[in-house]
Design a binder for these strands. Structure first.
Length: 518
RNA sequence: GUCCCCAUCGUCCAGAGGCCCAGGACGUGGCCCUUUCAAGGCCAAAACACGGGUUCGAAUCCCGUUGGGGACGCCA
């Protein structure tokens, strides 16, 4: 039930669709983009993974069809909106690589892109509806309404605005105005039914009976969400509204507004929500939900994008790992599933490992640099003379990484001059008194600098083991502790090779001192 | 309470009436590789919520039940 038979039907009978109305003629260089979508966050919080996925779906859809992706800031709630939040959201989107064609900073022909800068426009549109008789002034005090609502809730009844101001006489109105009573504007909901064909849920229908005469313009002259979203989507020529499931029940109200303004309606695609492990709407108590937090923890934007794209969407094939471009090529709104999705951090880890695995070493090394600097392990020569060496190290470590900072710990033995022996490791692998002689022999067997490669080193170790009549494992384990100070590391022959002959010799000397003194 | 959405392995998805005693991925268990830890390879356990229809045939269509989610603001 999520295919497009509805398109043809609607095109015949229903209001015009943007998707048809805005298609340019072939050869018309100035044709409007066929597709215009937007992400419209409210800066009352950080960019959370749910919002990020909504943004991603919009972005993928726009890029897939060569359309426009617009960023609009819904900051009409001045109380709760803040600049920091705007900056954070913008930052998060940039990090994910979701660039916009029109928005607060980039500008564009349909600006401004802050709702707080479009207040006059909303007011004018609301007044227009009053003039047309489609909306009316409401002088009810919020306190009175709240009391009524609470009362109804107590009684277990549904509350709907009682239309006290719907048909006021001119006298009453004059009285209110004379008393300078604050007034809001409410939409006059006509009787009937409203339906639409959602791109992910199919046909959805509402009886107006369940709608109340909702407020368009608050008494402080600020618009409500219902008004501003519709006015902006009209002004910005939005063709497809891709947003969270939680907006389904707002859609009939908005549809009524499009009709009242006599404007073509966009198509809607309501994407399911992201839930926490307890199947509740994802929130702070589920741990990290902010995109920034995942960045801070060392996840790659590629992994985040990959993971998020597959939460509630499927390319229709048994394929999981995608680059951003591959996602763009594969994305369709029809692939969005209808049910909510549970956020699974373990799978995110896997995607992160996969993306690190597939990235060129040079690229990964670049991502690691800030982390190395931060932890004091960085040397400038890693950017110049030892760049190739660093990339070799990256190749050695990366199969063992889940997140970026994993590198710091695992690569440490390669980045410091002297390693501390882990007591337990020393106890276990350096307690054999014959080890000193074995290792002395090994030191002589090790290949010269120009042939200091894993296979040559391995041959030397095995040869030594045979000669000394000990198991290769004995030497190997001892070597691991000597080289890294630990009992776990990458393959030891690779470790020696990457360490290089000089440092290997240093560390062998050091282990001899250690063995002699214990 | 009312309205709306949803319902396949623990989790994310595939599945458009016969291709399905249901496929892939994460996670889990085992084996292989192996000097450790990973990575990788192979194998395994693991699901169509329930009840009615429709049909020669239903995971797929319809109805109901149950369960989950969302919305019912002068928040967005």
């Amino acid at each position: 039930m999520r295919r497009f038979p509805a398109v043809a039907r609607r095109a015949k009978a229903g209001p015009r669709c943007w998707s048809r109305a805005s298609v340019g003629k072939p050869g018309d260089a100035r044709a409007l983009p066929v597709i215009r979508v937007r992400f419209a966050p409210s800066p009352t919080g950080y960019l959370h993974v749910g919002g990020a996925r909504t943004a991603l779906f919009n972005w993928l859809f726009a890029r897939r069809h060569g359309g426009a992706f617009i960023l609009r800031i819904e900051d009409t709630d001045a109380e709760r909106s803040s600049w920091d939040m705007v900056a954070g959201i913008v930052d998060g989107l940039r990090w994910l690589g979701l660039d916009w064609d029109e928005g607060p900073d980039t500008g564009g022909p349909h600006g401004p892109y802050f709702q707080s800068q479009r207040l006059d426009r909303y007011r004018a549109m609301a007044e227009r509806l009053v003039v047309d008789g489609l909306a009316y002034y409401c002088y009810c005090s919020p306190d009175r309404l709240k009391a009524k609502r609470d009362e109804a809730e107590q009684a277990g009844r549904a509350w709907k605005y009682d239309r006290a101001c719907c048909e006021l006489t001119p006298d009453r109105i004059a009285a209110f105005e004379a008393g300078a009573a604050p007034r809001a504007i409410r939409f006059r909901v006509p009787p009937g039914r409203t339906s639409f064909d959602d791109l992910v849920h199919g046909h959805i229908e509402f009886d107006h009976e369940h709608l109340e005469d909702f407020v368009l313009l608050r008494s402080d002259q600020h618009p409500t969400y219902q008004l501003s979203v519709v006015v902006d989507d009209i002004d910005m020529e939005i063709t497809h509204v891709v947003r969270g499931d939680d907006h389904i029940s707002n859609t009939p109200k908005q549809l009524l507004l499009y009709a009242a303004f006599r404007q073509p309606i966009p198509r809607f695609a309501h994407v399911p929500l992201i839930l926490g492990p307890d199947k509740k709407r994802l929130s702070k108590r589920h741990g990290a939900t902010s995109v920034t937090e995942y960045r801070r923890r060392g996840y790659l934007p590629e992994a985040m994008v990959n993971f998020l794209s597959l939460l509630g969407w499927s390319p229709g094939a048994d394929r999981e790992v995608f680059t951003r471009d591959e996602l763009v090529a594969a994305f369709t709104l029809e692939g969005i599933s209808g049910g909510n999705a549970v956020f699974n951090p373990e799978k995110l880890d896997w995607f992160n490992a996969q993306q690190m695995q597939r990235m060129p070493a040079a690229e990964l090394a670049g991502r690691l640099e800030p982390w190395l600097r931060e932890s004091g392990l960085w040397e400038d020569r890693y950017a110049t003379a030892d760049r190739a060496w660093l990339e070799r190290l990256v190749d050695l470590i990366r199969p063992r990484m889940k997140r970026l900072p994993d590198f710091l710990d695992q690569a440490r033995p390669f980045l410091v001059d002297t390693v501390e022996y882990d007591p337990a490791a020393g106890e276990k692998y350096l307690s054999d008194p014959t080890l000193a002689d074995h290792l002395r022999v090994l030191a002589d067997e090790l290949p010269p600098a120009d042939r200091f490669q894993p296979d040559q080193i391995e041959a030397a170790v095995r040869r030594t083991a045979e000669r000394r009549r000990v198991k290769a494992a004995t030497l190997i384990h001892a070597l691991r502790v000597a080289m890294t100070g630990r009992s776990v590391s990458p393959g030891i022959f690779d470790v020696l090779a990457v360490l290089g002959p000089d440092r290997v010799r240093d560390r062998l000397d050091r282990v001899h001192h250690f063995l002699a003194s214990s």
